[in-house]
Lab assay of single mutants.
Amino acid sequence: YKELDVHLRRMESGFGFRILGGDEPGQPILIGAVIAMGSADRDGRLHPGDELVYVDGIPVAGKTHRYVIDLMHHAARNGQVNLTVRRK
């Protein structure tokens, strides 16, 4: 696995990616679609299928989808987010 730290600034449309997973206990949280011309797309480092490991330094492995969405909403209010993702 390769770990990447990604800092994104929120645009009008948000951070520019969707979150998948976390529906079953222990299921990984994954990056879903990366939205064209969004913040994540312009940054270029997030890829669909990347596993989300940390959101603003908070571990999200094994957490629920709702928990991660709530963290992302909090980050959106701050206008930026630091993510750590893991890729095979």
Rank of each mutant, 00 (worst) to 15 (best):
R66H: 11
V81D: 01
I19K: 03
R77V: 12
I19A: 02
G79C: 06
H74W: 09
I58L: 12
A40Q: 05
E51K: 04
G32C: 06
L52H: 00
G22F: 07
S13Q: 11
K2C: 08
V85Y: 02
L4A: 03
L20R: 13
K2T: 10
F15V: 00
E12N: 14
L83W: 02
L4C: 04
A33E: 15
S39H: 04
G44V: 03
D43R: 02
A76H: 14
R42I: 13
A36Q: 10
G57P: 00
M37C: 13
G62M: 07
F15Q: 03
E3S: 09
H47G: 05
E51T: 06
D50Q: 04
Y67I: 08
R18H: 15
D56N: 07
G57W: 05
S39Q: 06
G14Y: 01
E51F: 02
E12Y: 06
V34S: 04
I19P: 02
G16Q: 02
F15C: 02
A33C: 09
D5R: 11
V85M: 03
R10V: 10
V6D: 03
A61V: 14
R86A: 06
E12W: 05
G49W: 04
G22R: 08
A36V: 06
F15E: 03
G16P: 04
G57H: 07
E3M: 11
D23P: 03
G16D: 02
S39A: 15
H47C: 13
M11D: 15
D5S: 15
A61K: 13
R86K: 06
A61M: 13
E24H: 12
H73F: 07
A61Q: 13
K88D: 14
H73D: 15
G62K: 07
P48E: 15
L20M: 13
K2F: 12
L71G: 01
L83R: 00
V55T: 01
D43E: 07
Q80C: 13
N78Q: 11
L4E: 08
D50W: 01
T84Y: 06
R9D: 14
S13A: 11
N82L: 10
T64K: 10
L20K: 15
G32T: 10
A75F: 03
G32N: 09
R42C: 09
I29G: 02
G49A: 04
K2D: 05
I69R: 13
G79H: 07
P25W: 07
D50F: 02
N82H: 14
V81K: 02
E24M: 09
G16F: 02
D23H: 12
I29R: 03
R45F: 05
D70S: 12
R66C: 10
D41W: 11
Y67M: 11
E3K: 09
K2M: 11
M72Y: 03
T84H: 10
Y1R: 00
K88T: 15
G16V: 00
I69G: 10
G44A: 05
L52E: 03
G26M: 05
Y1Q: 03
L46M: 09
E3A: 06
D56H: 01
L46P: 01
G14V: 01
S39P: 11
R42H: 08
T64V: 08
R42N: 08
L71A: 06
Y67C: 10
Q80A: 12
R87A: 10
R18A: 06
E12Q: 12
G16C: 01
G16I: 01
T64Q: 09
D43H: 04
Y67F: 12
G62L: 04
T64G: 13
P25S: 08
D70N: 13
Q27V: 10
L52I: 10
K88L: 12
F17Q: 01
M37R: 15
D23R: 13
L46Y: 03
N82R: 10
L30C: 12
H74T: 15
D41R: 05
R9I: 13
D23F: 10
I31K: 01
L20Q: 15
K2N: 10
V60Y: 00
V85P: 00
R66K: 14
V81Q: 00
V60R: 00
D56A: 02
G32Q: 09
R45K: 09
T84I: 10
H47I: 13
A33H: 13
G32M: 02
V34R: 03
V68C: 09
T64C: 10
V85Q: 01
D70I: 06
V55D: 03
K63G: 07
L30G: 03
D23M: 11
E51L: 05
E24Y: 13
D23G: 10
A36R: 12
K63A: 11
E51S: 03
G21M: 08
A76K: 14
D23K: 12
H73I: 09
G14K: 03
H7G: 07
D50L: 00
M72L: 14
I58R: 11
E51N: 04
I69M: 15
M11G: 15
G14C: 03
E12S: 12
D5C: 11
N78G: 08
V34Y: 02
I35F: 10
Q27N: 11
R18T: 15
V6C: 05
G21I: 08
R66A: 14
G22E: 07
L83H: 02
D56G: 03
G49Y: 06
A36W: 05
V55Q: 02
I58V: 13
G49K: 05
A33L: 04
G49P: 01
R10T: 15
E3G: 04
L30P: 00
I58K: 14
P25Y: 08
T84R: 15
L4Y: 12
D5V: 11
M72A: 00
H73N: 13
M11I: 10
V53W: 08
R86H: 15
I29T: 06
G57Y: 06
L30K: 14
L30H: 13
G62D: 09
G49H: 05
T64E: 09
M11W: 09
M72N: 02
N78D: 08
L46V: 07
L30I: 14
H65T: 11
G32I: 02
H73A: 14
V55Y: 02
E3T: 11
A75M: 04
G22C: 07
S13D: 15
A40T: 04
R87S: 11
E51G: 02
R66W: 08
R10Q: 11
L52M: 08
H7F: 15
E24F: 09
D5Q: 12
E3W: 08
S13H: 13
R86S: 08
V68A: 09
P48S: 11
V68Y: 03
I69F: 07
G38R: 02
H74R: 14
G49M: 08
L20F: 10
H47W: 10
E12M: 06
G16K: 02
Y1E: 06
N82F: 10
P59E: 12
E3D: 11
P25R: 07
H7C: 14
D50T: 01
M72C: 06
L71V: 07
I29V: 10
R66D: 14
V53K: 09
I31F: 00
T84N: 06
A75H: 05
G44R: 06
M37K: 15
E51W: 04
M72E: 02
K63L: 08
F17S: 01
F15S: 00
H74N: 13
I69K: 15
R9W: 12
V81L: 08
I31S: 00
N78I: 13
V60S: 00
L8K: 02
S13V: 03
N78Y: 08
A40F: 03
F15A: 01
H74K: 15
R42V: 13
V34T: 07
V6W: 00
E24T: 13
H73G: 14
G49F: 06
A40K: 04
